[in-house]
Simulated assay, not measured.
Amino acid sequence: MTNSDVDRTALLADVRRVVVKVGSAVLTTGDGLNAMAIERLAAQLSALADRDLDVVLVSSGAVAAGRQRICERTQECLRDYSDMASRQAASAVGQGRLMHDYDEAFAKHGKVTAQVLLTRSGLKTRERFVNACNTLEKLLEWQVIPIINENDTVSTHELEFGDNDTLGAMCLVLTGADLFINLTSADGVFDRNPDDHPDAKPIPVIEDIAALDIEALCDGETNVGTGGMYSKLRAARRAAQLGVPTMIVSGRGNFDLPAAMDGVPCGTLVLPDDKAVSSKKFWLAYHDDPSGAVLVDKGAAKALLNRGKSLLPIGIRKVEGCFDRDALIFIKTLEGEELGVGMCNFSSSELERIKGKRSDELTAIIGPTPSDEAVHRDNMLLDAAI
């Protein structure tokens, strides 16, 4: 599972575009934004850009910046920001403050930045997703450093990314990046939670993250952000599926990203899968939360896993949830094991009527059908990291 002898230099030699995600635990203190952390991060990323690397930054910190600003102006330092309305309002106040600090910090190194605020709903349609890709590509062509954050002010709970680790992984396919760097408050990944186990050992390299029991490994979160190591490893697993390596390293103290790019061991390196999924399948699997599920029999599960087949209605035994056509759904065994996710050609009500039926029976039951397949293999990702 792990191997400290991986040739990092060779692995990173051909990297041309990198997505760097930094969380609130790195950027903030108990009083708000940490100006020194922002200055240090801007210097590090500018050094990467000076190596002709395209750099994309995914940054948290708007809510903390907003809290800080509100406290400075109103002295309401004890306000509760746990509800969504307060969090969104604080983000509205803090996003400008955060970008102002970034813009000034990068300008000291001759770099131009651009604010990009994304919502999950804005990436749900393929057309808008492609438009976001084109915009980011043009910014990088102009040698501008995009600074991406979720548009917390307008996101609803149902449509938010949930954490910027998830957003960072989505930005890999948005930008076509070939490296994901996740800056955290910890010195990489450990075999147990070091907060609870002082004897926890670091994991320098994760060769096969799909085989790693992330749930068992992670039982704690930072007290500032919404992520924690679980979300970072889940994002790394998604990156691995895309064929992109991930570096989970400390963003505190005297961290040195140029040295890390030269192969100097630090933190944890998560290796990519040998066989990468397409960007279309990646987007399909992770652009939305599944709306329901279908439970399939053993024959259908075998056909999906071993023969690369599409899922036909005849193999479906149970339908869970209420969803429309073209919804993203889970595909599970009758025992509840998740096989993957896919875009369903039928609504849940239609599937209830045609489950277990042969393809030549479908029209007689529900009328003209969009397809013989419930989920086509081209619109399916098995072993998805949901």
Rank of each mutant, 00 (worst) to 15 (best):
R8A: 04
T9W: 00
A13Q: 14
A13G: 01
D14S: 15
D14M: 11
V19G: 09
V20E: 01
V26G: 12
N34S: 15
R40L: 00
R51E: 11
V56A: 06
V58H: 05
V63F: 05
A65G: 14
R69N: 03
E72I: 06
Q75Y: 12
Y81T: 14
A90V: 04
A92S: 15
R97K: 10
D101T: 15
D101S: 15
Y102D: 01
Y102P: 02
A105R: 06
H109Q: 09
H109E: 02
L123F: 07
K124W: 07
K124C: 11
K124E: 15
T125A: 15
F129Y: 15
N131W: 12
A132N: 11
E137Q: 14
Q143H: 15
Q143F: 00
N151I: 03
E158K: 13
E158D: 13
F161V: 07
D165P: 01
L174G: 07
G176N: 06
L179V: 04
F180S: 10
F180V: 04
N182Y: 00
L183F: 09
L183D: 10
D191Y: 04
P194Q: 01
P194H: 03
H197P: 00
P198G: 06
E215C: 09
N223D: 14
N223P: 00
L242R: 14
P245F: 01
I248Y: 00
S250P: 04
G251H: 05
G263K: 05
T268R: 08
V270H: 08
L271W: 11
W283I: 09
W283R: 05
H287L: 05
S291G: 02
L295W: 12
V296S: 07
K302T: 13
L304Y: 06
L305P: 13
N306P: 00
R307T: 03
G308V: 00
L311C: 07
L312R: 03
R317M: 13
R317P: 00
G321Q: 11
C322R: 15
D324F: 03
D324N: 13
L328G: 03
L334A: 09
E335N: 13
G342E: 04
C344D: 00
S349C: 10
L351G: 08
R353K: 15
K355S: 10
R358W: 04
R358Q: 13
L362V: 12
P370H: 07
L381R: 04
L381Q: 09
L381W: 03
L382F: 03
